[in-house]
Amino acid sequence: MDFAYILSRAVAQGLPLLFGSNGEILNEKSGNLNLGIPGIMISGGVAGIVGALVYENSTPNPNGFVGLLVSMICSVSCSLLLSLIYCFLTVTLRANQNVTGLALTIFGSGLGNFYGGSISTILGITNNSIPATAAAYKMPLVPFYDKLGAIGTIFFSHGCMFYIAIAIALISWYVLKKTRTGLSLRAVGENPATADAAGINVTRYKYVATCLGGVIAGFGGLYYAVDYSNGLWDTQSFGDRGWLAVALVIFVVWKPNLAVLGAFLFGGLYIAEIFVPGLTSATKEIFKMLPYIVTIIILITTSLMKKKENQPPASLGLPYFREER
């Protein structure tokens, strides 16, 4: 059994979760408990496939990098649109966040799976694979990674999305922790009235953080769709990854830098059957329960310890209305 290979699979499994949780962290830091993230991930991913497919079918010799660019633009636009729906309903129209989020997940996963499931029928094409684009995504940025031994296999065998995920996580961490923007965003999520009084535009911060978070989460779907599944969408296989990403947010106590490690750990648990000896197809389902169990335990212990820094943002889930009286 090649240990390095297994770890590289764990990393690959973790990447959608990393994108997803990173997006959710930005949402939650602004006070939006966006339960629509799973829906955004699915439609963001399928939008990428649709874009690449349309492009690859439009030209006899598709260029993988054009395909990559097209799929990214499609994914971003789709995630942005869904995030805007959420923002408009919860921030501008002050609809209940939980209800809106769940409606968005119903809509988003429906939209994604609708196009993802019947793509060739809808587009009227026979060829439903995107080999050039998928290859562009999969191309390792470090061509000599196999010379770096195990480390190379684990970390550098991945395509560009790996680096994007890590970069976004680290940038998010840096921005939240070290910049004025991050400070303002944290204040908005903790206490919007105070942020407002300090001259921070609460609505704008909520919109920007939520939309940016949505786009990042959509990248998780995109990676899964075009890289991990080679551009072939199966309506069943994305499964609970969206919710796992939400769980990961709690697991890493709202810290994007920890999310990197957490995502790979969750990813590893997802494929535990490969490396844990003696797992049957039944007990492997129990193994997949672990991330949720661990998350629940974290939720309980952080509530028990009452350490303020590890609690959810104080205004999470609550709408803000200045002229409330």
Binding site: I85, A103, I106, F107, S109, G110, L111, N113, T235
Partner: peptide, 16 residues
Amino acid sequence: NLNDFASDVVVGVALF
């Protein structure tokens, strides 16, 4: 001849 995820799309729009 389309898949029935269309239902979720429609229900989602109505809920919004």
